[in-house]
Design a protein around this nucleic acid. Structure first.
Length: 881
RNA sequence: GGGCGAAUAGCUCAGUGGGAGAGCACCUGCCUUACAAGCAGGGGGUCCGGUGUUCAAAUCACCGUUCGCCCA
């Protein structure tokens, strides 16, 4: 065959074409083949809010590596793709868009608004898919899902009603986190705490039925308007006598009681605290214990409520200043000190969260958490790396009830209806009549569910649950979930407890946790910083294989990585290297028909095959352990270091020579190794490997690399002898190159070489003569045995028991050579000293394992012989001075 | 307050109970008919500090320092 590939790899010419080829041949489709082991991954569904970022690129590349690897290993693989409706986030986007036209969602109405969100969803869903195609992911697109599609919605409805019937979902007035900007309740984990410098205001409340006053300290003076008590610790002697008495709440002129509660920390501030049950989670608890009224001072919009007299309608921050000012006028502010404390912010819009009491829906978590804790403790679901188990358990064991209702429109509407008679109906099907009064005046709850409620069902709702589908039967539980550590509690934990509750089984066996992709300076990539790198841009400029390889090699399990263009370039260079090595092989495979490996392999061939099987084994082992970065590096080192730098160079001798049979053997091995290496490379760099593979003059019926098999070397190709011999030969070549370079002898210019070696090595070296000549630019190699006289005016190097001489006569500076040897001798003596110390230690000899002692002894002999040879040589040279 | 992580070459980071590694950067020499996105050679490190366990610690344990993250 004739091959004419360009010398620079152009991903653009290849990638779209190859992806199309895979799609057209349906290679990603999971055929549900009986008798095959399954390997299933469900994608962490990206939000339809916007486009994919580097984190998605990493997450999906990891999944694709695993899926391609398992597919080639012959598993019945399913990678199920999909997207998430992302309630608040998506709704915010569309509202922003509306706001730019001066409209709010209320102006357009619920129905019209939802239609607009669906349009938005369609657009971004399309973009996301295009991005995933570009990245080269091999998802089964025929099974794609969306959290708001019919099937997922059915699952959501079933779970909600079922949990309600079991008493695990309830509705009630409790303290929740309210985002005044998103205008909805959010769950505890959607609140991000941020340390802020603020002030601690000490306010004096005058006594009513006693003389004197009591001082309370607060970071939120404006909430005092809603105070309904002052609390002290029951054992605090300073205040014990005041418990049960009353103080006058300034500004509001309301009498409130002094109560005693264990919660109060006597060492904080004055030891007395104001209690605002409507605006602080702890105060709310105290309020319940003491039956206090919860007076709402701040409304849903973040402004003071109408009941707050002259402060009514004022923004909460403005009210804070006014309240302090007014209290100061009354002389009731004791002092204001600087204080730092953590303030909750909305994860979606960064607005300060307002804790307030509100009528919401909740999931009772304790009973659901228990089995979810158990399966992880029993190791049925494992986190990788293992340390994330603690993150998970820590959260699960301290879980609180989950507020699941959201006051937005985009999402799964809560399946509860209220009748004018006061009856509430929770139902799997939309009710038409009230079962209590028979009336038809029913109104559905206007709220929707937390997005994570539907994502929590993802591993089984996407496979068809609550129906008993063949897919669910066949592919559940899934094998591995790949995700970032930032959503372990949001998502991973919830999938586990929902799966335990409804499937009575784990959702996945392993959770492969990765870190974040940061910018080159180590900062989180964010819109506001504008430091995000668009994966599409990188793909466009460098190719998807390059981006994938960069992300994979930059990744150590569970650790963050920085995205740097230096690394991208290194990966790009690697792709080009692969391309050129393949070009070289293909250029030499004219009229070649693969017929398996020849029988009488030479040393180089046995060596590269030994390296190849070792690489396959290593790569496989690392993939098993989810060490994808190390696995990719192993392949990199083999291709660049062993195959290109050595084997291809060595092969040039027979390929360019006249020995026909040797030439054919070379072709056969080059082909064999390149073909196998493309299979090994495929999960990491699917495009270039498929492209090259398609150019190979293959035997066999496989039409595509993607569905061919994972390398399984023929027979036993491991060859210890070849390995040892080649190591020696390579060391000799390196030693010669090194000597030449030491004195600035130009590369390519020939120089004579003398090798003085013991008899056992002479044959080996003689056989390798032509290769030593080529790779070390030797004019000729003279072999002498150890009794032969050494060349006088020559550079010296010692490799094992072999002495390497470069007899360069006049151009050698003897003094310089002596001092060079002296330096080397010092190094040898330093190492020798360490070894001697070990070997003369009785405890070492007694307790260290045999192979270690053996190793140290060998090392000792080698160093000692080298020391002797160097010393002798130095004395000889000194005589010449 | 509780938990977790990081600290290794100039930079970014792997690694591991038994001779300190990679990529990039740097220095030297090369257009050697696959590749200058390349080839050959080189310099450069108290593996954060301390204590302990061990025949052996950069690696394990404990204490500390600095930085980062998560949770309350």
């Amino acid at each position: 065959m004739t091959v004419n590939l360009p010398p620079v790899y152009e991903p653009k010419e290849v990638e779209d074409k190859i992806y199309q080829f895979w799609l057209e041949n349906n290679y990603f489709y999971a055929a549900r083949e009986e008798g095959k082991k399954t390997f299933t991954i469900v994608i962490p569904p990206p939000n339809v809010t916007g486009s994919l970022h580097m984190g998605h690129a990493l997450d999906n590349t990891i999944q694709d590596v695993l899926i391609r690897w398992k597919r080639m290993q012959g598993y019945d693989t399913l990678w199920l793709p999909g997207t998430d409706h992302a309630g608040i986030a998506t709704q915010n986007k569309v509202e922003e868009h509306l706001a730019s036209e001066g409209l709010s969602r209320y102006d357009v109405g619920r129905e019209k608004f939802l239609q607009m969100v669906w349009e938005w969803k369609e657009e971004y869903h399309g973009r996301i898919l295009k991005q995933l195609y570009k990245l080269g992911v091999s998802c089964d697109w025929s099974r794609e899902r969306f959290t708001l599609d019919e099937g997922c919605s059915k699952a959501v409805r079933e779970v909600f009603v079922s949990l309600y019937e079991q008493g695990l979902i309830y509705r009630g007035d409790y303290m929740i986190n309210w985002c005044p900007r998103c205008h909805t309740a959010i769950s505890d984990i959607e609140v991000e705490h941020e340390e802020k410098s603020s002030t601690l205001t000490h306010i004096r409340y005058p006594g009513v039925d006693w003389a004197g006053s009591i001082v309370v300290a607060t970071t939120r003076p404006e909430t005092m308007l809603g105070d309904t008590a002052v609390a002290v610790h029951p054992e605090d002697d300073r205040y014990r006598h005041l418990v049960g008495k009353k103080v006058m709440l300034p500004l509001m002129n309301r009498e409130i009681p002094i109560i005693a509660d264990e919660y109060v920390d006597p060492s904080f501030g004055s030891g007395a605290v104001k209690i605002t049950p409507a605006h602080d989670p702890n105060d709310f608890e105290i309020g319940l214990r003491h039956d206090l009224e919860a007076i709402k001072a701040i409304g849903d919009d973040g402004n003071m409520t109408p009941e707050m007299g002259e402060y009514a309608g004022m923004d909460r921050h403005e009210a804070r200043e006014r309240v302090v000012k007014d209290l100061q006028k009354l002389g009731l502010v004791e002092k204001i000190e600087d204080y730092s404390h953590s303030v909750g912010h909305c994860q979606r819009c960064n607005t300060e969260i307002e804790p307030l009491v509100s009528l919401q829906w909740f999931v009772k978590m304790k009973p659901l958490a228990e089995p979810a804790i158990k399966v992880v403790k029993e190791g049925k679901t494992r986190f990788i790396p293992e340390r994330f188990t603690r993150t998970y358990l820590n959260w699960m064991e301290n879980i609180r009830d989950w507020c699941i209702s959201r006051q937005i429109w985009w999402g799964h509407r809560i399946p509860a209806w209220y009748c004018s008679c006061g009856e509430m109906i929770v139902s799997r099907t939309d009710p038409e009549r009230c079962p209590a009064c028979g009336g038809g005046d029913l109104e559905q709850d206007p709220d929707v569910l937390d997005t994570w409620f539907s994502s929590a069902l993802w591993p089984f709702s996407t496979l068809g649950w609550p129906d008993k589908t063949p897919d669910l039967e066949h592919y559940f539980p899934t094998n591995v979930l790949v995700t970032g550590y930032d959503i372990i509690s949001f998502w991973v934990a919830r999938m586990i407890f929902m799966s335990m509750a409804f499937m009575k089984d784990i959702p996945f066996e392993e959770v492969c946790v990765h870190g974040l992709v940061r910018d080159a300076l180590g900062r989180k990539m964010s819109k506001s910083l504008g430091n995000g790198v668009d994966p599409l841009e990188v793909i466009d400029k460098f190719g998807a294989d390059t981006l994938r390889f960069t992300l994979i090699t930059g990744q150590a399990p569970g650790n963050d990585q920085r995205f740097r263009y230096e690394n991208v370039e290194a990966s790009r260079n690697f792709a080009n290297k692969i391309w050129n090595a393949s070009r070289f092989v293909l250029m030499n495979l004219e009229d070649f028909r693969p017929q398996g490996l020849p029988a009488d392999l030479n040393r180089h061939q046995r060596w590269i095959l030994d390296r190849y099987v070792d690489t396959v084994e290593q790569t496989n082992m690392l993939l098993e352990k989810y060490e994808l970065g190390e696995a990719a590096k192993t392949v990199y080192e083999f291709i660049w270091g062993d195959f290109c730098d050595w084997f291809i160079e060595l092969s040039k001798v027979p390929l360019y020579g006249k020995d026909g049979p040797e030439k054919e053997k070379s072709k056969a091995v080059l082909y064999y190794v390149l073909e196998g290496t493309m299979r090994l490379l495929h999960p990491f760099m699917p495009f270039i490997s498929e492209e090259i593979w398609q150019h190979l003059p293959r035997k066999g019926k496989d039409k595509a690399l993607i569905t061919s098999s994972w390398p399984k070397p023929e027979g036993n190709l491991s060859d210890k002898q070849a390995r040892m011999e080649m190591n020696l030969v390579m060391q000799v070549i390196r030693a010669i190159r090194n000597l030449r370079s030491e004195i600035g002898f130009p590369v390519g210019k020939k120089a004579a070489v003398i090798l003085r070696a013991p008899a056992k090595y002479l044959r080996l070296l003689y056989q390798e003569e032509v290769f030593i000549k080529k790779l070390a630019w030797a004019e000729g190699v003279t072999f002498i045995d150890t009794i032969a006289k050494k060349p006088p005016q020559a550079l010296t190097a010692i490799v094992d028991e072999i002495e390497v001489y470069l007899p360069l006569g006049g151009i050698i500076d003897l003094e310089q050579e002596i001092s060079r040897l002296e330096k080397e001798l010092q190094g040898v003596e330093k190492d020798l000293k360490k070894v001697v110390a070990k070997l003369s230690n009785d405890n070492f000899l007694k307790k260290a394992p045999g192979n270690i002692i053996e190793k140290e002894k060998n090392k000792h002999d080698e160093l000692d012989s080298k020391r002797k040879k160097l010393t002798t040589r130095m004395t000889e040279l000194k005589k010449l001075l």
